[in-house]
Write a protein that binds this DNA or RNA. Structure first.
Lengths: 225, 225
DNA sequence: CAATGTGAAGACCTTCACAGCC
DNA sequence: GGCTGTGAAGGTCTTCACATTG
């Protein structure tokens, strides 16, 4: 009766399908099979079918899925019918790159504000926005209806920024700082650590190098897409 | 007898522990318990113990783990005793930010080259490096001993770049382009899609908003760190 | 007959709880 | 006494395989 709880693993793949479906729609395709979708998304077709059936979606046996219907279905499940406002704290290298990144707007996320504490940065313009002081965070969250906070500060500042965000009512945080953040249970936090990704690759690189020398053991690849 | 196969989930957490341990070492701590490490890394202590025991590491009952020994152990497991060279393809917003990011060097990754195809970019300088043309990729991989390729191009160019990297002998790729890449099985690929992270957050944001209105269903938070 | 939707089996990961050791 | 290391139990996710249906 309730919108059925979508498994976490499925949630994390839905945006992927959405991207592929948008491409298909752009190419004029009107239907797609789980095989085709799987191929394009870099996953297995069984996974696609399980994932899509989890959101109660309608495919047609013998035919496949209706592309535009599926797009609507997934966007609705992910809450993308609403256009979220985000703000970015930390206007260093990464923060600036994120501010200029077109992909956010394309997918319905509006960068409402850029914040920093550095007086040489506050007041400057980046990507059509004026950098404002972190102290303005509560005001901005309220007036702009910000739902998601992005942390792109140095590690040392990240916890303070997270605390301020939580205090201002933000309950979804994307953390790029290389630091583990403590937040109340009701706050959802995701982290992206660039250096950690490289270290993980290092493990598999090393393992495969050993295997090639006859070290035995290891299996195959990891990635998918 | 063989370096025992470390579970993928464990591999993805080891860099996290390493970061925490480095902080502890910097603060002069010589031992750490699984509880303390778990707290600082944002995971459970059982997980920490399972993870560390997977790499055969020695803790001391009643005491905990020796910080510097554990650092060595993890670095060795991850292959971080070697200093890897990486290259970045695509010198747009994100590519430049990555090139300037200090965190890579701090953890032993040397950015050996920046590549692009845009003639207005080739020859310019970014973060002490001269941007070179993508056609030079095979030469650079050979002469610089590049092990990891980072793709920071637009989606449309990503597959071509991946193909070139694979052709040049690179077997580990970190992909920031919003595209699913097909690579041979022997190549390890990881992806980071900034917009996808936001879309995932959108789902939980929406779900929790519904729950707060009495929509029932949902559980707790997701994140950890 | 092509392709979905799904029980059932299997792999993987996490959590529990406690024996064992310093 | 405190903390590790680990079997066992419990979840979650993936894969299989096939009955079902337009």
């Amino acid at each position: 009766m309730n919108p059925r709880p979508v498994p976490d693993a499925t949630v994390s793949r839905l945006p992927l399908y959405l991207r592929v479906l948008a491409e298909l729609a752009g190419a004029g395709e009107t239907t797609v099979s789980s095989d085709e979708l799987a191929e394009a998304a870099g996953v297995t077709s069984a996974k696609v079918r399980k994932d899509l059936s989890a959101l109660g979606s309608y495919g047609t046996r013998g035919i496949g899925y209706d592309v535009s219907q599926l797009i609507d279905e997934i966007r609705s499940t992910l809450g993308l019918t609403e256009h979220w406002s985000i703000l970015i704290a930390g206007v260093g290298n990464l923060g600036q790159a994120l501010a200029r990144y077109k992909g956010f707007a394309e997918r319905g996320f509006r960068v409402a504000a850029l914040l920093d504490v550095d007086p040489t940065k506050v007041g400057t313009h980046v990507a059509d926005l004026t950098v404002r002081h972190l102290d303005e965070l509560p005001d901005i969250v309220r007036t702009e209806g910000v739902a998601i906070g992005v942390i792109a500060t140095p590690a040392a500042a990240a916890q303070d920024v997270a605390d301020r965000m939580v205090g201002a009512g933000i309950r979804s945080i994307l953390n790029f700082a290389p630091a583990s953040l403590a937040v109340p249970e009701a706050v959802t936090i995701r982290k992206v650590d660039l250096a950690i990704e490289l270290q993980i690759l290092s493990y598999y690189e090393q393992r495969d190098a050993l295997r090639d020398l006859g070290g035995g053991s290891g299996a195959g690849a990891i990635g998918g897409s």
